[in-house]
């Protein structure tokens, strides 16, 4: 395989890893806990900025980019810090923003959080260098490894895979346990879950904070690879891409989230980035977004439960009548 192809494939694999992590994070919040977090991308952005600032070092007075703080932390501390910042930010936003609102009102709150965050990051130029964003983020361990650019690509793929596995273990630890069952119970009927003694406020916070932390980690892995990050990288429609991925893949199912990440952000957005451009400038971009919008509409119409629907849980009483466990009309449309 030529090295150009290897570069291409390894890059796509790294984007895939990042998107899978992000989809797991959002799936925990939305698919399991039912939180309509339309500011999800903000937490990925917070992680990315944290990792960038903690590897770039202190900016001098004459630096081309100005930002708050700055340090040369060794890998993997910036990634862990990014996860912590994502989780802390989620705790803050969740404490203020997570009220018991109807889901479209909750979506509005989170959408506005996303817009406010973009506005602050853009206009407070001394915080994370404003609209120009941060650039020249060093690659982790590049100075230690002394390998060719191509070998480094594959090293980064392996590292992303390891982080993915760790995130997967964390996510399944929650979703596969009685805790995951409580989250789903809350999603289906909050009042009933509360009546059965579940602390719904705590459960919502837990899903929100862990999801935020995962988003932060995914942002760190992404920014260390692409080495630049600016408000243009995390506009609110990016969150919509992850929601579309969950709808296409199947929300409430970690495997569905993986399938969604492969089909939507990677196949639709990332891979076409490397293809030759045609048409007037911005045309491909526009067509991509139209395609994402239509994809969401088509799936909501034909397969609202996604390619890999959430597994129907069978409990002892249902075992005698396995045929009756389907989800009614929606189920008939599933492939």
């Amino acid at each position: 395989m030529s090295s150009a192809w290897q570069f291409y494939i390894s890059s796509v694999l790294i984007y895939l890893g990042v998107d899978i992590m992000a989809c797991w994070g959002l799936n925990l919040q939305f698919g399991y806990a039912g939180l309509v977090n339309f500011s999800f991308i903000v937490f990925q952005a917070a992680g990315a900025y944290t990792a960038a600032v903690l590897t770039l070092g202190r900016p001098g007075p004459a630096s081309i980019q100005q930002y708050l703080g700055g340090a040369h932390w060794p890998f993997p501390l910036p990634v862990l810090a990014a996860g912590a910042v994502g989780a802390l930010l989620a705790a803050g936003v969740g404490a203020i923003g997570l009220r018991r609102l109807r889901s479209d009102y909750e979506a509005m709150v989170m959408l506005v959080v996303s817009l406010i965050a973009t506005s602050i990051a853009t206009n407070q130029t001394n915080l994370v260098n404003g609209a120009n964003g941060l650039d020249l983020v060093p690659k982790p361990l590049a100075g230690v490894l002394h390998v060719s650019a191509l070998s480094y690509q594959w090293f980064y793929v392996a590292m992303t895979a390891v982080v993915c596995v760790l995130v997967f273990l964390l996510v399944t630890l929650i979703t596969g346990s009685p805790l995951g069952r409580s989250l789903r119970a809350m999603r289906e009927n909050e009042r009933a879950a509360a009546a059965l003694g579940r602390n719904v406020t705590g459960l919502r916070m837990l899903a929100f904070v862990v999801g935020g932390g995962i988003a932060g980690i995914s942002g760190a892995i992404l920014v260390m690879f692409i080495s630049a990050w600016s408000p243009g990288s995390w506009l609110y429609p990016e969150t919509f891409v992850f929601f579309t991925a969950l709808i296409v893949g199947g929300s409430g199912n970690n495997m569905g989230a993986v399938v969604g990440a492969v089909l939507v952000p990677v196949a639709f957005l990332e891979a076409t980035r490397f293809l030759p451009q045609f048409g007037p400038p911005g045309f491909i971009d526009a067509v991509q977004w139209i395609a994402i919008g239509l994809l969401a509409l088509v799936f909501l119409w034909f397969w609202p439960r996604g390619v890999v629907p959430e597994r129907r849980r069978r409990f002892p009483r249902a075992r005698s009548q396995p045929a009756a466990t389907g989800g009614g009309r929606l189920e008939q449309n599933s492939p």
Binding site: V36, I247, G282, D285, I290, L297
Partner: peptide, 28 residues
């Protein structure tokens, strides 16, 4: 039978299709 959340996604999808449809025709 699309519920509240689904309708949010439907309206955002429509918004994207219209907005980027305009961009594809007239350019940015």
């Amino acid at each position: 039978g699309t519920k509240l959340f689904g309708m949010i996604i439907v309206t955002i999808s429509v918004a994207l299709v219209i907005q980027y449809g305009i961009q594809a025709i007239w350019g940015a």
